[in-house]
Structure formats: structure tokens, C-alpha cells
Design a protein around this nucleic acid. Structure first.
Lengths: 228, 228
DNA sequence: TATAAATAGACCGACGGTCGGTTTGTTTCA
DNA sequence: TGAAACAAACCGACCGTCGGTCTATTTATA
């Protein structure tokens, strides 16, 4: 094979690119190191020069995903024109926009992430996302508590719990998606919509906000997402 | 090797016994099928006669664990002398008793379950526990809503969310345990106690109960558990 | 030109899983 | 009654694949 040399960062990123694609496409366990190096046109020696193990590659994928997520969220949390509740709502609004824009990829991602052979992938990504999100949300809750716009005893704990609740929404999005694909469209949309509302209610009550102050979803969103 | 024949159920349970022990002791991934059959004194052929894969064995372990959990919880949920809030508190009280009684094993379990090589184990157990718990809790919430002792819109969704919150408590128990083992006893106890209180507050607020009606923990519990 | 980083790819051992065959118990029927 | 037929349980040698290692070679750079 011809010997090609590239800058370390480039190579490393190419490997992570391939891995990310393959992991989501075929699952983490079903993707072999040989698959990755074939796609990336790299020898095994080169691969193990950059990553000590397949596991390390997974971690790199998860970390990069979380970092990108952080970069998107960061500005929102630093916006001084919004109070904490406004930030939360902006977060959900942004999340909705993103979900609609990237619906096809996202659906694919969900399907991949919840496959049993992908628990490792799911877990690592969740861990990485939590690691970057908890401090951000905790800080937001602290500010909101000081402003008096919400009531969050122990912002750290509350942040983790709020983010933990997010998992239940992800779960229900997945089952709703399955149901939609099975043709049960009405039920799927109704379920997703209802659960997202309940999620909003849970947050409102937990943070002692008045009813309706959190807008996790908006009329027609569930359906629009499913049909996108 | 001498040929020993046993009733299928016995054999199968022996295999699950060994697997459970080995999985928790050395981790799921580090435990090989050969390890299991060696401990169980069974040939490979016999093993694959009972389980189609190593994965299937893991599922069996998780399912049995969840079933046992269900058997312990079932009576409590059927106790007619308690209202829904009383049931919840009884649940937490029982859980505390159990935690103190089995503290050593539980600590070991926690350490095993949160090791990175055990995500599959963790995930499967969580899934199995959820599957048996959600209907129970949902039914309890429905009853409570009818009684008027609590306010749970959409009991199914609320049940899943409440149970999802439990994960954050498990996470904090693990970190508190680590901190305790590192010698930071005061901080560990304070952290665990505080977070459990926050968990209680979250539940109270979500279900619109009056402050202090949910007793997730009691004075001195966190410390007692850590020192047990 | 010396040195270290980067790349190549043959190779290894362990692992999950398969397969052909044996043993044991149970059912069927002359 | 007993032997033939069948099914379930069991055995362990074997296989293909996979993550990871190793040695050799090339390339950049100081």
C-alpha cells in the first residue's frame, strides 16, 4: 500500500469521522476495527498509533459529539437578555428547531442508539453529554434561584435530575417513532405530545414555576417531527 | 468428563447463578462463556443448549433479578391499608432497611455496576427493573390520583419519569461511596443526604404533595449506610 | 544524517459460537 | 414385556473473527 502521511489531527479526525458513521450505521459492536481502518484508508499500525483501543475510539466519538453540543448550547446560556426560565424555553425551542431540521438523521440516530448492541455507544454519549451539560444547567438554576425566577434547592442535584428526566423523553421519542413506523400514526403523535407536556409539567412543578411557563413542545410539533 | 444429567430448570438456574456471581465479581465483558461453564461444571454444548448466546444469558440474569425484585415489592403495592403516599413512603422505608441490611453486597454491586466494562450488565438490569416497576408505580399513581392524595397527570408517563429519577440517586450513591472510600467521610455523607432530600423534594413537587410528606431518607441514614 | 514520529501489514491468542456425535430417558407398539 | 424409535440433554474438539501486538520501513525535521 502506498504510504500516505497526514497531519496527526487530520488523521485522528478522519478516524473519528469514519467511526462515528459506522457506529451509527451498523452499531458499535458490529463495527470492527478493520472496518474502520478500511474506510479510513489507514493501516492497523496507524490506527493503534492514534488510539490505544477500540474503546478509546468510542470515547473520542462521544467526547467530540458532546463538545459540539456544548458549542451550540454555550451562547444560549450566556445570553444576558434572558432570565433562567427564558433560557430554558429558548433551549427547548432550539432543540425543537434542531429536531425538525435534522429529523431524518435524528430518527436514524435514535434507532441506532436504542439497539441492544449499542448500549456502550449510548452510554458513552450520555455520559459525555451529561458531563458538559450538568455544570451549565446547574449554573443556570443558580442564577434563576438568585433572580427569584425559579426555586431550585441544590442546583447541582437539580440539574442532574432534570437532565436525567430528559432520558425518559428520549425513550418515549423512540417508542413513538417505532409506533409511527408501524403505521399507528395518531397514537404515536398523541403519545409523544402528551409525554412532552408531562415532561414540561414535571419541570414546572419541580422548579415551582407557574403552569404553562415551560414550553417543551408546541401544538403540532410531535406530528411534524414524526412526519418529517 | 462424566455425564451428569439434571432437570432443565435446575441446570439453567445453576448457569444463571454462576453467571450472576461472575458478572458482578469480574464484570460482564471480562467473564467468558468458558468461565461460566467451568464454574457450573457444564460442557459448552450444554450451555448453548440452554442459551442461544452469552447475551441471552445476561438477559436471563437481568430478568431473574427483576422478577425477584417484583416479588418483594408486590405485597406492598397490594396493601389496602395504605394510601398512595403511604405506599411510596413504605417503599422508601423498605428500600432503606434493605440497603442497610445488605450494605456490603450492595456496595459491591454498585462498584461493579458502574464500571465501564459493565454498561451492558447495568443497562439490561435497569431495563428489566423498569419493565416490572413502571406498571406497578403507574397503577399506584392512578389510585392516588383517584383517592385525591396526589396529582399525577398521565400516570404512565409520570411513573417512568419518577423511576428515571431514581437513576440519579443511584449515581450519587456511587459517587458518595467512592468519596467515602477515599476517606472524605463527612462530605460523602452530607452529599448523599442532601441529594436524597432533593430527590424527595422533586417527587413531592411533581406529585403536588405538601412539603415533607415524602421521606426518602431519615436522619443519619446516609452515614449509617456508608459506614455499614 | 540522526532521531523520532508515522505508517504498514503479517501475525497472535482469546473468544463466542458451531457441529457431529454420544448418552439417557421416554414413548410406542408387536 | 421388551425392544425399537425418538427426543432431549450433553460432550468437547474445532472454527472464524476480532481486538490488539510486533517488527520493519518510510517520512519529516532538527
Amino acid at each position: 500500500m502506498v504510504r500516505i502521511k497526514k497531519s496527526p489531527e487530520l488523521r485522528s479526525n478522519e478516524l473519528i469521522d469514519c467511526a462515528e458513521r459506522l457506529f451509527f450505521q451498523h452499531g458499535y459492536e458490529s463495527t470492527t476495527v478493520n472496518d474502520v481502518i478500511r474506510e479510513a484508508n489507514v493501516s492497523k499500525g496507524a490506527f493503534y498509533h492514534y488510539f490505544v483501543s477500540k474503546e478509546a475510539l468510542l470515547e473520542a466519538v462521544a467526547t467530540r459529539l458532546a463538545e459540539r453540543n456544548l458549542k451550540e448550547l454555550q451562547p444560549l446560556f450566556e445570553d444576558p437578555s434572558l432570565d433562567a426560565v427564558g433560557q430554558l424555553n429558548a433551549l427547548f425551542a432550539g432543540s425543537r428547531r434542531l429536531k425538525l431540521d435534522m429529523a431524518p438523521q435524528l430518527k436514524n440516530t435514535f434507532n441506532a442508539l436504542f439497539k441492544p448492541e449499542n448500549v456502550a455507544l449510548y452510554h458513552r454519549i450520555d455520559e459525555a453529554l451529561m458531563a458538559v451539560s450538568v455544570p451549565l444547567v446547574a449554573e443556570m438554576l443558580r442564577r434563576g434561584h438568585e433572580e427569584g425566577t425559579l426555586d431550585a434547592p441544590d442546583p447541582e442535584a437539580a440539574a442532574l435530575m432534570l437532565l436525567q428526566l430528559r432520558v425518559s423523553v428520549a425513550k418515549v421519542m423512540h417508542t413513538a417513532l417505532k409506533r409511527y413506523e408501524a403505521g399507528d400514526i395518531e397514537a404515536a403523535a398523541a403519545m409523544l405530545d402528551g409525554w412532552m407536556r408531562t415532561y414540561g409539567t414535571a419541570i414546572e412543578r419541580f422548579l415551582k414555576l407557574r403552569d404553562g411557563s415551560i414550553e417543551v413542545t408546541e401544538p403540532g410539533f410531535a406530528r411534524a417531527f414524526l412526519e418529517a
